[in-house]
Computed example of a mutant assay.
Amino acid sequence: MTTPVLQVEALRRSFGPATVVDGVSLRIDPGETVGLLGPNGAGKTTTISMIAGLLRPDGGSVRIQGVDVASDPLSAKRYLGLVPQDLAIYPELSARSNLSFFGRLQGMRGAALRRRVAEVLEVVGLTDRATGPSKTFSGGMKRRLNIAIGLLHEPRLLILDEPTVGVDPQSRNAILESVEALSGEGMAVLYTTHYMEEAERLCDRIGIIDAGRVIAEGTREELVELTGRTDTVTLAGDGPLEEIEAAVSRIPAVREVHRIPGERRLVMVVQGAPQAVSAIVATATGAGMTLRDVEISRPDLESVFLHLTGKALRD
């Protein structure tokens, strides 16, 4: 069995009478991106502060690459790259100088450091802005430099805490592309966000956190199944709709079929639409339908969060 890069067991933390993190457990394997999805104040940042060894937990344990963070923090942190919400850069220094400084703190020197600085500048798309003072950067560019610093020493685990907050759409997309590339290279990534579209795009598994507890965890499909909701497939086209309706209704994945009055459309309630849609299209065309359009509508993580907590994700 693969040794997890990160193993968190029953992590707890209170501030005074308020319990902020209440029994959080997580596992991340090599090359896996796991998201913590929840609203502001859910306990995401406190959780990663304990994982990173910045905050002592009241209970539970954290192991990074098999090393216990509480008993051997220096060894554990060698495997860790942390990109915090707050920018951790020196604004008077250039991107290259920032990276060189932080690289030396990690014990990197000479040609190896220069080569790695060039590599991470390329990863985050800042090669052409390597020499100017970082105080002239846009908010998104500063965020990307923040990520480059976290990547510099080639950590086994990269923690990204709300890395796209307050950035422009172009920089946000650049950040997401960088994260996608990292997991493809075998790095384990823990990604906290309250943007469901980021979690859906990036994460192999997602933990939904609310009031300090992980209330559900799994792939997107597994989480959606918790709501009991199914997908909707709409076919638009011409042909004998009554016969087409009867034909597609016999497909096992199709739960219901409805004809829209006055329109040449069939709307189906389907279990597992991405897997069933090819059979639906083939059956409909075989029954005489000339298709103009096929549309699949699926429940999203916002629906899951609302179902599990009774409130919207951004409440």
Results as ranks from 00 to 15, higher is better:
M1F: 13
T2H: 14
T3R: 14
V5A: 05
L6D: 08
L6K: 06
L6G: 09
Q7A: 15
V8L: 15
V8M: 10
E9V: 15
A10H: 15
A10R: 15
L11C: 03
L11M: 04
L11E: 02
R12I: 02
R13Q: 12
R13Y: 11
S14F: 09
F15K: 11
F15G: 12
F15N: 11
P17W: 06
A18Q: 15
T19G: 12
G23S: 05
G23T: 05
V24E: 02
S25L: 01
L26F: 01
I28Q: 03
I28K: 01
P30S: 10
G31N: 01
G31F: 00
G31E: 00
E32G: 00
E32T: 00
E32W: 01
V34T: 08
V34S: 03
G35I: 03
L36H: 06
L37G: 01
L37Q: 01
L37R: 01
L37Y: 02
L37T: 00
P39G: 14
P39W: 13
P39R: 15
N40Q: 12
N40V: 12
G41V: 13
G41T: 13
G41A: 14
A42P: 11
A42F: 10
G43E: 03
K44W: 08
M50E: 02
I51F: 04
I51H: 03
A52L: 07
G53Y: 08
G53V: 09
L54T: 12
L54N: 13
L55K: 06
L55Y: 07
P57R: 02
P57Q: 03
P57V: 04
D58V: 02
D58P: 04
G59S: 05
G59V: 01
S61N: 05
V62T: 11
R63W: 03
R63C: 07
I64H: 07
Q65S: 15
G66W: 08
G66F: 10
V67H: 07
V67D: 07
V67E: 08
V67W: 05
D68G: 06
D68C: 02
D68E: 11
V69F: 00
V69N: 00
A70E: 14
A70Y: 09
S71M: 04
S71Y: 06
D72P: 06
D72F: 05
P73L: 05
P73S: 06
P73H: 03
L74H: 14
L74Q: 13
A76D: 09
